[in-house]
Design a protein around this nucleic acid. Structure first.
Lengths: 230, 230
DNA sequence: TAACCATTGTGTAAAAATTACGCAAAATAG
DNA sequence: CTATTTTGCGTAATTTTTACACAATGGTTA
C-alpha cells in the first residue's frame, strides 16, 4: 500500500447483489441464510467483501459463483449504501448490484459458508439482515423503471417465449396490468423480436407463436437513434 | 475496529462530486486545480477521502464547504467507480455524487489545499486527472435524463425566472432546441410554477413574466399520482 | 364428430398528446 | 412614429395511446 493512502481511514467494503429471477409466475429474489454472525440464521442478500485486486463486477461474479453456482448473469450497479450503522461490526459500505437470471437455466448450489439458499417472491419477503430490505426495494423500483426503456426483461425468460409470457413478466415487474393487444402491437412494432416459426403447443387453446429477442437488430436500431419504450 | 472486519482487505474510498452550475448561458462544472500529487497542477473534480464517522452526504457537504465555500446544495448519488488503476496511489474507490447550484448565489472560496477553482463549460472540458472526465460524462447524461422526469432544473436558476430562461436551461442540459410555445404550454399546464406577478424589465422587448417553482404544489401533485415530464 | 371454450393474432375507431406553426401585444431603438 | 424583438396565447395537423371487436386455432367435451 502506498504511503500517501495510509494516512486516510479506510472503511470495509462489501458487494451485495439483488438477484432477480422469474419463474413464469412471479418476480423473485435470491436469498441466503447466513451461517455466521452477524445475522446468523437470518436471510440476507448474497454478498461478500471486495478484494483489492477485483473490480466490482469480478467480485459480484465470484460471489454469485461461490455462493450460489451462478455465472454469466446480466449485472448492473444499483447504488452504494453507506449508513453509519448498517453493519453491527463497524463501518461497512455496500456497493450494490442487481442481476437478472432465468432460474430454469441454473441449478442452485448452496456454498459451504451458508445454511441455505432460496428464491423468495418479491411480494412476500421476510425481514432481512442489514439494510437489505431497503436495497431490494430500491432494486425493484430501478428494474421497473429500466424495463420501460431498455429491453432487459429477456434476461429473465427462456430464449424463446410467447408474447403472453413476456407480458406476464412485464406485469409482474411493473405491478400493473397491460392491454394484451396493445402490448402485442407495441412489441412487434418495435422490431426487437424475431419470430422463430415455432409455437407453444400442449396448452388447451390456440398455440402461441414463439419469439426470441433479436439482439443484433436491437443494437442496429439503437445506432439509428431508436429508443425502446413500453 | 471490530476484529471480524480486520480480516478483510479495505480499499481507500473517496467521494467525488460533479458540481453543475448554470450562468444563463451554458451548463458548467466546477473544477479544482490540485496543489498535491497525484495530478499536481491538473484540473479534477472536487473530492476527498471519506471519514469513517461520516455518511456520504455529510462528506460531500464537508468537501464542498471546505474546498469551495458551497453549502446546502441539491445532491444525488451518481455511481461508484472501482477500476483497479483509477488512482496511481493504489486501490481507491470513488463514490460519486452530483450537485446542482446557482453560481450567482455563492462566492467561490478556494480552499488552502488547492491552487485554484473555476467554472468550466461542459462543452469545453480539459483533460482531467483520474477518471474524472468519464465521471462528468456520466453525470451529464444522468442530469439530462433526470430533468425530463423530475423538476430539478430550478436548483440551477434564481428563485424567479422567465419561461425563456427556464427553456434555455433545458436546452443547455438536453443539448437540443425546443419549441418555445410548446415548452411554455407544457410547463404552465403541469401546474408546478406559480406566477409572481412581477416581470423581467430592462430588456429591449416585451417584458416577460417571472415565475417561481411551487414546491408545495408539486409535492401535492406527486401524491395525487402526477408525473412531471418534458 | 361437432359444439364449446380459452387464448391468440389482427384490426379499427375514439381520445389524448405532440408537433408545427400564426399572430397580436408589449416593450425598446432609431 | 415606425421598425424590431420577444412574449403570451391560440389552433390545426399529425402522431401516439387507449379501448375495444372479432375471426382463427387449438384442445375439451358432449
Amino acid at each position: 500500500m502506498n504511503n500517501d493512502l495510509s494516512h486516510y481511514p479506510r472503511p470495509s467494503v462489501t458487494i451485495d447483489c439483488v438477484v432477480f429471477g422469474y419463474d413464469g409466475e412471479q418476480l423473485s429474489v435470491l436469498l441466503l441464510n447466513r451461517k455466521e454472525e452477524p445475522f446468523v440464521n437470518q436471510w440476507t442478500l448474497l454478498g461478500g467483501f471486495l478484494n483489492l485486486d477485483e473490480t466490482f463486477e469480478v467480485a459480484v461474479e465470484r460471489i454469485l459463483s461461490h455462493k450460489a453456482g451462478l455465472a454469466g448473469l446480466y449485472l448492473e450497479q444499483l447504488y452504494t449504501f453507506g449508513g453509519l450503522d448498517r453493519d453491527p461490526r463497524g463501518r461497512v459500505l455496500s456497493v450494490s448490484y442487481y442481476a437478472l437470471v432465468n432460474p430454469r437455466q441454473f441449478e442452485l448450489v448452496v456454498g459451504k459458508m451458508a445454511n441455505d439458499l432460496r428464491w423468495c417472491s418479491i411480494q412476500d419477503l421476510p425481514v432481512l439482515g442489514f439494510d437489505h430490505n431497503r436495497i431490494i426495494e430500491m432494486a425493484r423500483r430501478r428494474l421497473a423503471a429500466k424495463v420501460t426503456y431498455q429491453p432487459v426483461g429477456f434476461e429473465l425468460l427462456n430464449e424463446q417465449f410467447t408474447m403472453t409470457e413476456l407480458q406476464d413478466l412485464y406485469e409482474s415487474i411493473l405491478g400493473e396490468s397491460l392491454d394484451r393487444r396493445n402490448f402485442y402491437k407495441k412489441i412487434t412494432a418495435s422490431g426487437i423480436l424475431k419470430s422463430t416459426g415455432e409455437r407453444r403447443t400442449g396448452l388447451k387453446s390456440r398455440p402461441a407463436e414463439l419469439f426470441a429477442f433479436d439482439k443484433t437488430r436491437y443494437e442496429q436500431l439503437m445506432q439509428e437513434g431508436f429508443q425502446f419504450k413500453i
